[in-house]
Design a protein around this nucleic acid. Structure first.
Lengths: 103, 103
DNA sequence: AATTAATGCAACCATTTAGTTGCTTATTCG
DNA sequence: CGAATAAGCAACTAAATGGTTGCATTAATT
């Protein structure tokens, strides 16, 4: 399931920091989104590939550098997944409450 | 950051399936939440420990067996984290739009 | 009391992951 | 053109991960 891949992609401090940077909305390139992280350029690049594979980001080569953008839809799916879990849970608890009220 | 651990915990198909089962609200034990998964009991137990460490679930030993419950707050934090990312993004896009409108 | 059921602990193994370095390629800028 | 900048590809390594098995323990059942 795709949501597994999404959560896995977000489940790393470096990648989460990248995503946080991107969420500012400022335009980013591979270099800029990787700057200051305590890892090599190639290390950062691997993380970006994982995010791209999970469709958390989109890589857009433009001439010499490559733009990096968040994919809003994918993040939304993650949020929706959790919301659905919570809903299922709430529904069940509600059912229990009715049951108790009927006693 | 704790949210990293949360996402990492959710980023595995077996663990996500366990969480899905728990979200039904039906009471579960280690055995019941692990039943039918194509892994050994100990394999499943390791997954549950990871979920417990990330505070996605709570393990409650009661006599011979151990209850397993979802920790709603933690899931909520995950959802809130994504929501905040989206909000930051929206805010920025809104700012850009104003800028364009001012042209 | 004896058995069965539900766990826990620990050692071990194969694969994946996060990270590196070295080298190459392709734009852009002076 | 030549230098510098942004990036790609590949090979390699250490550590983490997901999985196993074997054995011990504790609690419920009959």
């Amino acid at each position: 399931m795709a949501v597994t891949e999404l959560f896995r992609a977000l489940g790393d401090p470096t990648r989460l920091e990248m995503v946080r940077r991107l969420s500012s909305g400022a335009p980013h390139t591979i270099t800029s989104v990787s700057s200051g992280l305590q890892i090599s350029r190639q290390g950062a690049r691997k993380h970006l590939q994982i995010l791209a594979d999970a469709e958390v980001i989109m890589l857009e080569p433009r001439g010499r550098d490559t733009g990096v953008r968040l994919d809003r839809d994918t993040l939304e799916q993650g949020k929706a997944f959790i919301a659905e879990l919570e809903l299922r849970w709430d529904t069940r608890l509600e059912a229990l409450r009715s049951f108790v009220d009927d006693e």
